[in-house]
Computed example of a mutant assay.
Amino acid sequence: MKNVVGEAAKVRLRLVCAGLCAMFLLAACASRPETGFLTPIAEAGSKSTRHNILVATTRKRDSRPGTYFNGERATTLDFAEIAVSVPQNHTTGEIEWSSTAPGNPRTDFVVNKASYLDGDKEFIRTLNAQLSQRPPGSRKVLLFIHGYNTMFAEGLYRFSQIVHDSKAPAVPVLFTWASRGKLTQYVYDTNSATAARDELDRTIRLIFASDADQVNILAHSMGNWVTVEALRQIKISGKLPPMSKLGTVMLAAPDIDIDVFKSQMRSFGKPRKPFYIIVSKDDKALRASNFIAGGQARLGADENTAELAALGAIVIDMTDVKANDSANHGKFAELAELGPQLRSVLESGVSGTSASPGQAQEAAASSLGAIVTSPISLLGVPIRFIRSR
């Protein structure tokens, strides 16, 4: 009997791994950017665009050149500042990876400059220096938390792509937790995300204590788990930072058990500003997570969008959007192209007024201000916005 159970477990594990491998392009024969891809190189007339990314991380430092951090867990929060160069030939929604490290600034994402920061005070000092370059009232921060199976360079370059495509005026801050960047390390990654919640709590408090006027948060996949847990922890601590600074919270393809999320939202109460949840019902990565979790629905692939809206969220349904990845798990990156249009509606709030499809198209052309139940097209991307009336 024991052998039968053991064989069944092995078969189940093989099915899980096979399903995951079929879904992630990077899991095949393509090499991953583990080392060397962050070696600083000069732009030298490449006409590229530079973005200064601040980093807060629970990863261990890596002594290998051009790597900075690996997938192992550190015992303390660490910081860095990295300047990323986006090439002139950049295609929206994509990361132009070099086939060999460190890359060519004329054609690839590369790093121009990088340094570690010495603790909380230097992190805040560096953040405030960047904020001071913006006029009062426009000093915003965008905090990004990546998902499962993400190496440090991948999280850094994905965030740089989002910042570049969205033309975000905010100071970009990447919170990167200790993902090993391996499909077979799902449980390790889950535990790493959970272990990082205290340090994300700390990072959020540091940002709120800075000179920022507004703090916006974007989390992807498993990064949503640690994000919502950290926000819940802050809420129930009784020691709230100045929450008037909280801007938009966007949860993209969240890999969270739907029942756990409901419980978390009960701790929050109905938020003063709604969370935006980006879902896609064809997300294969979340289907695999559902399978691993014993059939428990994941928030980012939930069919009952009306139920999510009832919790105080605004749902952005991207099911009809064609993805750039085979797993349909990275569609949120394509929202960046909407840039000013999307930013305008998220900052001003979304109206609860019903609209006909014709009116919706007209509204979409201006501010996305209408809530519709039929898709509207923004820069060729069909999206649904759903909220409770």
Rank of each mutant, 00 (worst) to 15 (best):
251 L>Y: 10
246 L>R: 10
203 T>Y: 04
145 I>A: 03
233 Q>E: 04
163 V>S: 15
247 G>T: 00
263 S>N: 15
251 L>I: 07
154 E>S: 05
193 A>Y: 08
256 I>C: 10
233 Q>G: 01
137 G>S: 10
237 S>M: 09
252 A>Y: 07
209 A>S: 15
263 S>A: 15
160 S>Y: 14
181 G>F: 01
170 A>C: 02
171 V>W: 10
266 R>L: 14
138 S>G: 12
256 I>F: 12
159 F>Q: 15
132 S>L: 11
251 L>S: 05
275 F>Q: 00
239 K>A: 14
155 G>P: 04
186 Y>R: 00
208 F>M: 12
202 R>Q: 14
214 Q>D: 01
257 D>W: 13
183 L>K: 09
197 R>Y: 02
158 R>L: 11
206 L>Y: 12
235 K>Q: 13
197 R>T: 13
188 Y>W: 14
206 L>V: 04
268 F>V: 03
193 A>Q: 09
137 G>R: 11
203 T>K: 05
194 T>S: 13
223 G>M: 02
159 F>G: 11
200 L>P: 06
140 K>T: 07
197 R>A: 06
182 K>W: 06
237 S>K: 10
230 A>D: 07
146 H>E: 00
164 H>E: 12
261 F>D: 07
255 D>N: 13
150 T>A: 05
250 M>S: 00
129 A>M: 08
236 I>S: 00
183 L>E: 03
207 I>V: 12
219 A>R: 07
134 R>Y: 08
214 Q>N: 06
168 A>Y: 03
189 D>H: 10
259 D>G: 11
270 K>F: 14
167 K>A: 11
234 I>F: 09
230 A>I: 06
269 G>T: 08
181 G>M: 03
238 G>P: 04
220 H>N: 05
267 S>Q: 14
203 T>L: 04
186 Y>Q: 01
175 F>E: 01
173 V>Q: 03
130 Q>Y: 03
200 L>W: 05
186 Y>V: 01
202 R>W: 06
208 F>C: 05
174 L>T: 08
211 D>N: 14
145 I>C: 08
229 E>Y: 05
223 G>Q: 02
245 K>P: 00
128 N>P: 02
241 P>H: 09
244 S>L: 11
268 F>Q: 05
266 R>K: 15
203 T>R: 06
143 L>E: 03
173 V>M: 07
133 Q>G: 07
194 T>H: 14
130 Q>P: 00
219 A>V: 02
229 E>Q: 13
243 M>N: 10
153 A>G: 02
181 G>E: 04
180 R>P: 02
172 P>D: 09
258 I>N: 07
225 W>R: 10
129 A>S: 13
186 Y>T: 01
262 K>A: 15
178 A>G: 06
265 M>Q: 15
136 P>N: 13
152 F>Y: 14
230 A>W: 09
183 L>M: 12
132 S>H: 11
268 F>P: 03
232 R>Q: 14
169 P>T: 09
